[in-house]
C-alpha cells in the first residue's frame, strides 16, 4: 500500500473518531509500533481540530486525509479549503510574554511538534492548505524482508 485517502466533505468535530479509525487502520497495516500509532493519531487529531475550529471557524468544511508510506516513514497528508494559514509559523510558546504579545491558537501545534518528526505546510493550488505530518523510520520490516 503506497497511499490511501479518506475524504469528508462536511467535516465536523464529531468526525474526529472516524478519522482516527481510518488513520489507525492504515498505519497499523504498515507494521508500525502501537505507541507510535498513538502519537500519529494524536497529532492528526490536533491538526484537524485546529482546521475545523480555526480554519473553518467551527463550521463544517472539506477535509481530505491521505496516509502514505514513504520508504520506512509514515506521512499523513491533511488538505482543506480553509483560508490559507501556515501553522508551522506559530512560534514555540514563550510563557513569559505578556498577554497582548501572545499569538492565538491552542496546544495542538505544540503537541504535534512533540510527537512528529517533520511538519510541512504547503498552499494548495485551489487556495487551501496542505499539512504533512511525518514520522520517520517507523515502519518495521517483517521477517520475510
Amino acid at each position: 500500500m503506497d497511499s490511501s485517502t479518506f475524504t469528508i466533505k462536511k467535516a465536523k468535530l464529531k468526525h474526529l473518531a472516524e478519522i482516527r479509525r481510518f488513520v489507525d487502520s492504515e498505519v497499523s497495516a504498515l507494521n508500525v509500533h502501537p505507541d507510535i500509532i498513538y502519537n500519529i493519531l494524536l497529532s492528526t487529531t490536533e491538526a484537524i481540530t485546529n482546521i475545523i475550529l480555526h480554519g473553518y471557524n467551527g463550521e463544517e468544511g472539506l477535509i481530505v486525509i491521505e496516509v502514505k508510506q514513504e520508504d520506512e516513514s509514515v506521512a499523513i497528508y491533511i488538505r482543506d479549503e480553509a483560508p490559507q494559514f501556515d501553522p508551522t509559523q506559530i512560534p514555540t510558546p514563550d510563557l513569559t510574554l505578556p498577554l497582548e504579545d501572545r499569538p492565538m491558537g491552542g496546544m495542538g501545534i505544540h503537541l504535534i511538534r512533540q510527537f512528529m518528526d517533520r511538519i510541512i505546510y504547503r498552499e494548495t493550488p485551489q487556495g487551501g492548505n496542505e499539512l504533512i505530518l511525518v514520522k520517520e523510520n517507523v515502519i518495521q520490516k517483517t521477517l520475510e524482508e
Partner: peptide, 14 residues
C-alpha cells in the same frame, strides 16, 4: 482564548 488557555495552564503547572 487559544493560547491564553495554554498559558494559564502553563502558569498553573508551574
Amino acid at each position: 482564548s487559544g493560547w491564553e488557555v495554554f498559558h494559564a495552564i502553563g502558569r498553573d503547572s508551574d
